[in-house]
Simulated assay, not measured.
Amino acid sequence: MPARAHNGLRVVALRRVEAVLEREPWAWARENHARIAANWDRRIREKPALFNGIVLICVSRAVEDGVLAVRLREADYASFLAMHDFGFPEPGVGNCFGVAALRSGDGAYLLGEMGAHTANGGKVYFPGGSLDRNDVRPDDSVDIAGSVERELLEETGLGPDTVTFDAGWTGVLDGPRIALLREARSDLPAEVMKARIDAFLAREAEPELSGIRIVRGRADIDIDTMPAYIVAFLESRL
Results as ranks from 00 to 15, higher is better:
Pro2Cys: 01
Pro2Met: 05
Ala3Gly: 09
Gly8Asn: 07
Leu9Glu: 08
Arg10Val: 07
Val12Pro: 02
Val17Glu: 11
Val17Leu: 09
Ala19Asn: 00
Val20Met: 11
Arg23Lys: 15
Pro25Ser: 15
Trp26Thr: 15
Ala27Ile: 11
Ala29Asp: 15
Arg30Pro: 00
Glu31Val: 07
Asn32Thr: 07
Asn32Phe: 03
His33Phe: 11
Arg35Gly: 06
Ile36Trp: 04
Ala37Gly: 10
Ala38Cys: 10
Ala38Trp: 04
Trp40Lys: 12
Trp40His: 03
Asp41Cys: 09
Arg42Asn: 15
Arg43Asn: 08
Pro48Val: 05
Pro48Arg: 01
Pro48His: 02
Asn52Glu: 13
Gly53Ile: 02
Gly53Met: 01
Val55Glu: 14
Val55Cys: 10
Leu56Ser: 00
Leu56Ala: 03
Ile57Phe: 04
Cys58Ala: 07
Ser60Ala: 13
Ser60Glu: 13
Ser60Gly: 14
Arg61Gln: 12
Ala62Met: 10
Ala62His: 14
Leu68Pro: 00
Ala69Pro: 03
Arg71Asp: 06
Arg71Ile: 00
Arg73Glu: 06
Arg73His: 03
Ala75Glu: 08
Ala75Pro: 11
Tyr77Val: 09
Ala78Glu: 11
Ser79Glu: 03
Ala82Asn: 14
His84Leu: 09
Phe86Ser: 04
Gly87Val: 10
Glu90Asp: 10
Glu90Tyr: 02
Gly94Val: 04
Asn95Val: 15
Gly98Leu: 05
Val99Phe: 01
Ala100Met: 06
Ala101Trp: 05
Leu102Ile: 04
Ser104His: 13
Gly105Gln: 12
Asp106Ala: 13
Asp106Met: 05
Leu110Arg: 01
Gly115Glu: 15
Thr118Trp: 02
Thr118Leu: 05
Ala119Pro: 07
Lys123Ile: 02
Phe126Lys: 00
Phe126Gly: 03
Gly128Val: 01
Gly128Lys: 08
Arg133Asn: 12
Arg133Val: 04
Asn134Trp: 04
Asp135Pro: 05
Asp135Ile: 04
Val136Thr: 10
Asp139Val: 15
Ser141Gly: 08
Asp143Phe: 01
Gly146Trp: 00
Arg150Thr: 06
Leu153Ser: 06
Leu153Arg: 14
Thr156Tyr: 02
Asp161Lys: 15
Val163Ser: 12
Phe165Met: 13
Ala167Glu: 15
Gly168Asn: 14
Gly171Leu: 15
Leu173Asp: 08
Gly175Cys: 00
Pro176Ser: 13
Leu180Asn: 05
Arg182Leu: 05
Ser186Thr: 09
Asp187Tyr: 07
Pro189Asp: 13
Met193Thr: 00
Ala195Ser: 13
Arg196Met: 11
Phe200Val: 01
Ala202Glu: 12
Glu208Val: 07
Arg213Glu: 11
Val215Arg: 00
Arg216Val: 13
Ile223Lys: 08
Thr225Tyr: 06
Ala228Pro: 07
Tyr229Trp: 09
Glu235Trp: 10
Ser236Gln: 12
Arg237Ser: 09
Leu238Gln: 08
Leu238Asp: 01
